[in-house]
Deep mutational scan, measured.
Amino acid sequence: KELVLVLYDYQEKSPREVTVKKGDILTLLNSTNKDWWKVEVDDRQGFIPAAYLKKL
């Protein structure tokens, strides 16, 4: 499984997104879309802008 580091706080703006904090380490589920990556946060799955994440 691939992990990503959150570079900036992000507040979800729709039900398909998730809220994260800078410094969080998340499981990356899908990065095929270059703009929005799907991650897992506390048993929730959702999207975050790829620019907010860095692969570890």
Rank of each mutant, 00 (worst) to 15 (best):
P49K: 04
L53Q: 01
V18Q: 02
F47S: 03
F47A: 03
W37Q: 01
T32C: 09
P49Q: 04
L28E: 01
L28P: 00
I48N: 01
R16C: 14
W37D: 00
D35S: 12
E2W: 11
Y10W: 10
E2Y: 11
N30Q: 13
D9M: 03
W37S: 02
E12W: 08
L56S: 04
Y8L: 10
E40N: 06
K54D: 07
I48D: 01
D24C: 07
D24G: 06
R44E: 05
W36L: 05
V39E: 00
D42I: 10
I25T: 06
L26H: 10
L26S: 01
K54S: 12
D9K: 03
R16W: 15
N33C: 09
K38H: 10
S31N: 09
R44S: 05
W37M: 02
L28N: 01
V41W: 07
N33S: 12
L26I: 14
K1T: 14
D9G: 06
L29H: 05
L3S: 07
P49R: 04
G46Y: 10
Y52M: 08
F47R: 03
T19G: 05
W37F: 05
G46C: 08
V18P: 02
W37K: 01
Q45T: 14
A51K: 14
D24M: 15
K21Q: 10
S31Q: 09
K22E: 08
K22P: 02
N30L: 11
L28W: 01
S31H: 09
K13T: 15
E12I: 12
P15W: 08
T27L: 15
L29F: 03
V20R: 01
D43A: 12
L26R: 03
L53G: 07
D9I: 01
A51V: 13
I48L: 15
D43G: 14
G46L: 08
V39R: 00
K13S: 11
I48T: 09
L26K: 02
T32V: 11
N30G: 07
L26N: 01
V41K: 15
A51I: 13
E17L: 04
S14G: 13
V6A: 07
L53R: 00
V39A: 02
Q45K: 11
N33V: 05
I25D: 00
E40G: 09
L53S: 04
P15G: 11
D43R: 12
E12P: 10
I25R: 05
R16H: 13
V4H: 01
E2M: 14
D43W: 10
W36P: 01
V18M: 13
E17S: 06
K54R: 12
L26C: 10
R16D: 12
A50I: 05
K34P: 14
L7R: 05
D35N: 15
W36M: 07
R44C: 05
P15Q: 10
Y52K: 05
L56Y: 10
T27S: 11
Q45H: 10
E40D: 06
G23F: 04
K55W: 07
K34D: 13
Q11A: 11
Y52H: 12
T19V: 03
K54N: 06
V18G: 02
K22V: 06
F47N: 04
W36Y: 11
K54Y: 13
N30I: 07
P49T: 01
I48S: 03
R16G: 15
D42S: 13
E40P: 00
R44F: 06
K1N: 11
E40K: 11
V39F: 01
R44P: 00
E2H: 10
L3C: 10
A50M: 06
F47D: 04
Y10P: 01
Y10I: 01
K13L: 09
E12M: 15
Q11T: 15
Y8F: 15
K34I: 12
D35Q: 12
W37A: 03
L26F: 04
L29D: 01
Y10F: 06
D9E: 05
G23C: 06
L56H: 06
S14C: 07
F47C: 09
R16I: 13
Y52D: 02
K38L: 15
A50W: 02
